[in-house]
Design a protein around this nucleic acid. Structure first.
Lengths: 107, 107
DNA sequence: CTTTCATACCTAGCATAACTAGGTATGAAA
DNA sequence: TTTCATACCTAGTTATGCTAGGTATGAAAG
């Protein structure tokens, strides 16, 4: 369960440049060292929500000799929201670390 | 929104010793430097859930000249679960930090 | 050539978590 | 005597992530 941090993660995955849904799932899995192996039923609806909210835009593409993909890009609002979410994550994780009595990052 | 980490936080708040609901709320608020100012409607049901799950036990107490309180304590299972949750939080926050491009622990 | 696999998209509906918005009640302070 | 902080409670809303299905194509295997 990603519990509200999924949006930030998806937005961050698109920061490096446009990508399509399936690739985003792979990126998240790889970059999290398999911690987040998100089902499509989680990611696709999230992408739709984020586009609906104006944080992403999408366009269908068909690579030569490949199948059609919907490519997503960060909008300006998406970039701004990502910055907010990063700050929110910082505050959140800081507070949880304080409460769990852990050091910042246990060895 | 605490998004699934509330249980860990509540369990951690009881690690130092038994406490009642209202005090737990205050503890969480203080220890998180006001980041988590949880409404009672969040915490009380959580306490009930955790007791139902066998992670907490409770007993009514009436301090001299005070009003009755329900004191909660960690059970053995609660202590074990807290340890699990701490590990889960470590993995989770590590992965999110990796994805958001942050260092493990921003200064 | 046909079956399987990885890719690539989608959605209806479920479970549940956290919160809103109310309610009750007591002791202390104004 | 009214207000405030304490102290508890719960019904119902909302949103989120997931389950479990479905469609379809290109490449590889047999």
């Amino acid at each position: 369960m990603l519990k509200g941090h999924l949006d930030a993660i998806v937005l961050a995955a698109l920061e490096a440049g446009p990508a399509h849904g399936y690739a985003i799932i792979e990126t998240i899995k790889r970059a999290s060292a398999d911690t987040f192996d998100l089902p499509e039923g989680t990611v696709y609806p999230a992408l739709h929500r984020l586009e609906e909210a104006g944080l992403l835009s999408s366009a269908w593409m068909t690579p030569p000799g490949g199948r059609r993909r919907r490519m997503y890009s960060l909008t300006k609002a998406g970039t701004a929201t990502l910055a907010d979410r990063r700050k929110a994550w910082g505050r959140f994780s800081h507070a949880v670390n304080a409460l769990l009595g852990g050091r910042a990052w246990p060895a």
